[in-house]
Computed example of a mutant assay.
Amino acid sequence: MTASFKIPLSVLVVVHTPALEVLLIERATAPGFWQSVTGSLDAKDEPFEVAAAREVMEETGLDVTAPGHQLSDWGLQNTYEIYPEWRHRYAPGVWQNTERVFGLCVPAPTTVTLNPREHRNQMWLPRLEAADLCFSFSNAEAILWLSRLADSS
């Protein structure tokens, strides 16, 4: 059997409302680790937008094509060091991941359907509170970008 390693390319999807309320979900295996939707590409040639839509559906049950939902590629990419405790998921020698950032605007806060193997809790928070609660610096920075997006519209 061949080992299957994660691809070091991923998506981060900030789910938010027009009022800049942000959905955070808590990892099942790491209580207190709050984040937006994240996930690796399934194949190196999978388009980031396809991965973003898939991860949103898998982690929240939200359909990015539903009426009133708008998925947008923010044109931001982060490259960061993979935490040592998660490097075993990647091929030997892989220690960096590149993450593409998306936003999913939904009309209003809603209860989402979590995958219990991945997440155990959810909450909607104002943008600044959500950024403060995020474990990941790149996730917090992406949430803070929401104000720039609102100012440009």
Rank of each mutant, 00 (worst) to 15 (best):
A3P: 14
S4W: 00
F5P: 05
I7S: 01
P8G: 08
P8C: 02
P8H: 01
S10R: 06
V11H: 04
L12E: 12
V13L: 03
V14G: 02
V14M: 03
V15Q: 02
T17W: 07
T17P: 03
P18M: 01
P18L: 01
A19H: 09
E21S: 08
E21L: 07
V22A: 06
V22M: 07
L23F: 09
L24R: 09
I25P: 00
E26G: 09
E26W: 06
F33A: 15
F33K: 12
F33M: 08
S36F: 02
V37H: 12
V37L: 09
D42P: 00
D42C: 01
A43T: 13
A43S: 14
A43K: 02
K44H: 14
K44P: 15
K44E: 15
K44N: 12
P47W: 00
F48K: 00
E49S: 13
E49Q: 13
E49M: 05
V50H: 10
A52W: 08
A52H: 09
A53V: 01
E55I: 01
V56C: 06
V56K: 08
M57W: 15
E58N: 12
E59D: 10
E59S: 07
T60R: 02
D63T: 09
D63Q: 13
V64P: 03
V64M: 05
T65N: 11
A66R: 15
G68L: 14
H69I: 01
Q70W: 12
Q70I: 11
L71K: 09
L71T: 11
S72I: 11
Q77E: 15
N78K: 04
T79P: 00
Y80R: 15
E81H: 09
E81M: 06
E81W: 00
E81K: 11
I82Y: 13
I82C: 06
Y83Q: 14
P84F: 14
R87S: 02
H88Y: 11
H88N: 11
Y90D: 09
A91P: 00
T98Q: 13
T98V: 07
T98L: 06
E99F: 01
E99P: 03
R100C: 05
V101N: 12
F102C: 02
G103F: 05
L104G: 15
L104N: 14
V106D: 10
V106T: 13
A108E: 15
A108G: 05
P109K: 03
T111R: 12
T111M: 04
T111C: 02
V112Y: 07
V112D: 07
T113M: 04
N115E: 12
P116I: 09
R117Y: 11
E118N: 09
E118Y: 07
H119T: 08
Q122P: 00
Q122F: 10
Q122N: 04
W124A: 02
L125Y: 07
P126K: 11
E129Q: 11
A131T: 10
D132C: 07
L133R: 13
C134Y: 04
F137S: 08
F137H: 11
S138L: 00
S138E: 08
S138G: 08
N139G: 03
I143Y: 10
I143H: 05
I143L: 02
S147A: 12
L149K: 08
A150W: 01
A150C: 05
D151Y: 12
D151T: 03
S152M: 12
